[in-house]
């Protein structure tokens, strides 16, 4: 069965097709929610809500178009909404400590590898936390969902040039932050959803 056929079957409420869609798209939706929300528990919750919402609104999906950007847009909207409703204090310390997230590469990683992966994950979340919800979304869709500029624009309701610009500024901000963190170990650069700085050092 092709993906289109699965989607059509799911539109008609076939349980096996709904299950197929969820299985196929849950990992990427969860990945997006995790990067956006920074906590495995929140990500689990949001991923579930996003996919249920997608299944419930399948009737509005255009079969001629790719499914991935459509479902990621639903998840994106949900995550940005949640981020906006969230209070500014975001606990980075508690992040990832409930052990609900694993890593994909290799089977059965050693405790050291797990710890290292967790540290890396945490460092990346620290970088993402410095961005505004929209910038965080753009970065997430670009780096980990492999969407094109056009698809990102559609998912974020921005123009392609705005996506490029936001992505660049976010990259610069994060690069600066990363370099700063490498210089003086342990001190995270000023976080809290700031917009990335403008380039020009002319």
């Amino acid at each position: 069965m092709t993906e289109q056929e699965w989607i059509m079957a799911a539109m008609h409420g076939e349980e096996s097709a709904i299950s197929w869609l969820v299985e196929a798209y849950q990992p990427m939706v969860f990945g997006l929610c995790y990067r956006m929300l920074g906590s495995p528990t929140d990500a689990e919750d949001a991923a579930q809500d996003a996919l249920v919402k997608a299944v419930m609104s399948l009737q509005s999906f255009d079969l001629e178009r790719p499914f991935k950007p459509w479902v990621l847009r639903i998840a994106s909207n949900l995550c940005t909404d949640r981020l906006r409703r969230r209070r500014p204090e975001v606990s980075l310390d508690g992040m990832g400590d409930d052990g609900a997230w694993e890593w994909q590469a290799g089977s059965d990683p050693s405790p050291e590898q797990q710890l290292e992966a967790r540290e890396r994950q945490k460092a990346i979340q620290v970088l993402l936390e410095t961005l505004s919800p929209v910038d965080r979304l753009v970065v997430t869709l670009y780096y980990w969902q492999d969407l094109s500029y056009e698809e990102i624009a559609e998912a974020t309701h921005l123009s392609v040039s705005a996506v490029k610009s936001r992505l660049f500024r976010a990259r610069r901000g994060m690069a600066e932050c990363w370099a700063q963190n490498q210089d003086d170990e342990g001190s995270y650069c000023n976080s809290g959803m700031r917009e990335a700085h403008y380039v020009g050092h002319a």
């Binding site: 349980e15 709904i18 299950s19 969820v22 299985e23 849950q26 990992p27 969860f30 990945g31 995790y34 990067r35 495995p40 990500a43 689990e44 991923a47 579930q48 996919l51 249920v52 299944v55 419930m56 609900a100 997230w101 694993e102 890593w103 994909q104 590469a105 992966a117 890396r120 994950q121 460092a123 990346i124 970088l127 970065v139 780096y143 980990w144 990259r171 610069r172 994060m174 690069a175 990363w178 370099a179």
Partner: peptide, 28 residues
């Protein structure tokens, strides 16, 4: 920027809990 690129590109992929898909399907 090059360093950031490397950090982001090799970031570990978060994997959802094994029972999440079944729970989601049941709810949907």
């Amino acid at each position: 920027l090059a360093q950031l690129e490397m950090v982001l590109r090799v970031a570990p992929v978060p994997v959802p809990p094994a029972d999440l898909a079944a729970k989601t399907t049941a709810r949907a």
